[in-house]
């Protein structure tokens, strides 16, 4: 796993009488999904690299309740939310960075009404901030210069919360060639996983949504498709596999690209 450092947990920090600057909310996909775990580790590497004092909840973390809420199960959502809020408040958490737009949306928008108010950012916003502060550059690692990258807007980051610029800012610093898909930003097409679709078979139709999206992405002739959401990552990677383009086109999270560019 080539992690050269230990990921601190809240329990450890608390035992040492310390408080982190920011809590990294990993999310279920980031915790269990093999592909997303890599992104999780890269986010940790970035946090470690810039020297931010952070921590994770580790085994004390639990689903935010997002898929239950979108599926219509408000009971289960609020059970999850209130349990999580209890943990977060007990640790006196003030600021949270999430590795997933769904966790981000839920904690930022739906937890305050249930007693959990925090400053919540998505990891692409953290990366943008670090670039703006000069703490992160694109040097010392893999060069993306001149490479063709297209960015897929996750619905729960873009339309749901109006965050379009932060992820693009993180790509601009690479001096790569950014190409937009026809449907991008507020007009971006969903990968097909939102609204709890990730956990079920699609309804009858004539095409899968992720294939529709991959077809559009491939029209830009990209070398890299950049994502910012573990669910989009799954859907887009599946699409690329289906099209047998795994060799030519890489689907990478903004955090992975950033980590690679900085040789982390």
């Amino acid at each position: 796993m080539n992690m050269e450092f230990k990921v601190p947990t809240m329990a450890e920090l608390m035992a040492a009488g310390e408080e982190p600057e920011i809590l990294f909310w990993v999310g279920c996909a980031g915790s269990y999904d093999e592909r997303a775990q890599k992104i999780t580790r890269d986010i940790c590497k970035i946090l470690h690299h810039v020297g931010i004092k952070y921590a994770v909840l580790g085994t004390e973390e639990s689903c935010t309740g997002d898929p239950a809420k979108r599926a219509g199960n408000e009971f289960l959502f609020q059970m999850q939310a209130m349990t999580n809020i209890e943990v977060l408040n007990a640790y006196n958490i003030k600021k949270i960075v999430t590795g997933c737009p769904h966790c981000f949306n839920t904690i930022k928008n739906e937890y305050p009404g249930l007693g959990g108010t925090y400053e919540v950012i998505h990891h692409t916003q953290l990366i943008q901030d670090l670039i703006n502060e000069g703490k992160l550059k694109a040097e010392g690692g893999e060069s993306f210069k001149g490479r063709k990258i297209t960015y897929h807007d996750p619905c729960y980051l873009g339309r749901a919360n109006g965050i379009y610029e932060a992820p693009r800012k993180a790509l601009e610093v690479l001096d790569a060639q950014l190409v937009e898909m026809k449907r991008c930003k507020s007009n971006g097409l969903c990968c097909g996983a939102g609204g709890a679709q990730m956990f079920k078979e699609p309804e009858k139709g004539n095409k899968d949504i992720n294939v529709e999206r991959i077809d559009e992405a491939l029209q830009t002739n990209p070398q890299v498709i950049a994502a910012g959401c573990p669910f989009c990552m799954t859907m887009l990677s599946d699409g690329i596999k289906l099209k047998d383009k795994e060799q030519e086109v890489k689907v990478l999270d903004i955090a992975e690209i950033t980590a690679r560019a900085n040789g982390l």
Binding site: N2, M3, C28, S31, C63, Q80
Partner: peptide, 22 residues
């Protein structure tokens, strides 16, 4: 989610395994 606190059938005890090899 009710039983394992995650939408997939994984054990909550394994939630932090991604950081193994620390």
């Amino acid at each position: 989610i009710e039983n394992n606190q995650a939408p997939w059938k994984y054990s909550p005890a394994d939630r932090f395994n991604w950081a193994e090899g620390n």
